[in-house]
């Protein structure tokens, strides 16, 4: 007779590995998206727009932008994975229901999903770091420290995305989340320009959201500096995760274990 052969701490692993294996099958297009898009932004905006802008906060614009792109890409990758892909596995392919007839709980499955979101953010940041490194936009080896932050950022945005997935009735629903939260965050958290010139209210708003805090840690690391208030920034990302993940678990349990 079989006992529970897996440690409760590791039950997420086979589900995560399943996602890795599927991702590997479509490696070509996946990597093209990871590398191609940020490369286009850096070339077109960084060098193109940058040539009109001159320096920003003492940095060439393309360097400023590269560090912002790292965060934006980590956020987008995890959000897409936690919404479109997770929704497909939840509601279209019944993949999760299949897993739940094995000795896995919905929590095991969702832990795997958010770790996978973090993993994808990590991969996309590795890709951008390589490009930025080749273009000479990275100061020194300290930039590698952005990788664990990218993982946490992915877990955070993955958890938030799962909350949206839990209540979504179709793919179109995700546009609300993108339009109302992700895009404003992208534009107002300092990815493309410093927010110091923005109205006070906007600055306060940005600081209440997670992306700002990720940038506040990652940008200094990319340009050879030392980030300030690391504990505060990490706490914000962790707080969002600790609120979003249990909420997503509850909502999804309610939805599929009726």
């Amino acid at each position: 007779m079989n006992g529970l052969t897996m440690s409760p701490w590791l039950r997420w692993y086979p589900v995560w590995l399943r996602n890795v294996r599927v991702w590997r099958k479509l490696l070509g297009p996946a990597l093209l998206g990871n590398i191609g898009e940020p490369l286009l932004y850096l070339l077109a905006l960084g060098y193109g727009l940058g040539s009109f802008l001159g320096d920003l906060e003492g940095l060439p614009y393309v360097v400023f932008l590269a560090s912002g792109m790292v965060c934006a890409s980590a956020m987008n990758t995890a959000s897409f994975e936690g919404m479109y892909s997770a929704y497909t596995r939840m509601a279209v392919q019944d993949t999760w229901i299949g897993m739940l007839t094995a000795p896995l709980s919905i929590r095991d499955v969702l832990i795997a999903e958010v770790i996978w979101c973090g993993t994808k953010s990590f991969i996309s940041v590795v890709a951008i770091l390589i490009i930025a490194g080749l273009l000479g936009l990275v100061a020194d080896v300290r930039a590698l420290l952005v990788l664990p932050i990218a993982l946490l950022l992915g877990v955070c945005f993955g958890s938030m995305a799962l909350v949206v997935t839990a209540v979504a009735r179709n793919y179109d629903f995700f546009l609300y989340y993108f339009t109302l939260l992700i895009t404003p965050m992208l534009l107002l958290s300092g990815v493309f320009f410093p927010i110091s010139g923005m109205p006070e209210a906007v600055q306060v708003g940005a600081k209440l959201l997670p992306l700002y805090h990720a940038i506040a840690m990652m940008r200094p690391l990319m340009i050879g500096g030392v980030p300030q208030d690391v504990l505060l920034h990490l706490s914000v990302l962790i707080a969002y995760t600790l609120i979003a993940f249990p909420l997503a678990t509850r909502l999804i349990s309610k939805r599929i274990l009726t």
Binding site: N2, L4, T5, M6, R11, P14, V15, L17, R18, R21, V22, K25, Q93, D94, T95, I97, G98, M99, A102, P103, L104
Partner: peptide, 21 residues
């Protein structure tokens, strides 16, 4: 609810992994 991203044999292997096998 077979996994459409995998072949027949991969479906069996993947499912076994969910049991810790």
């Amino acid at each position: 609810n077979l996994d459409p991203d995998f072949s027949v044999i991969e479906n069996l292997r993947t499912y076994a992994s969910y049991f810790g096998l």
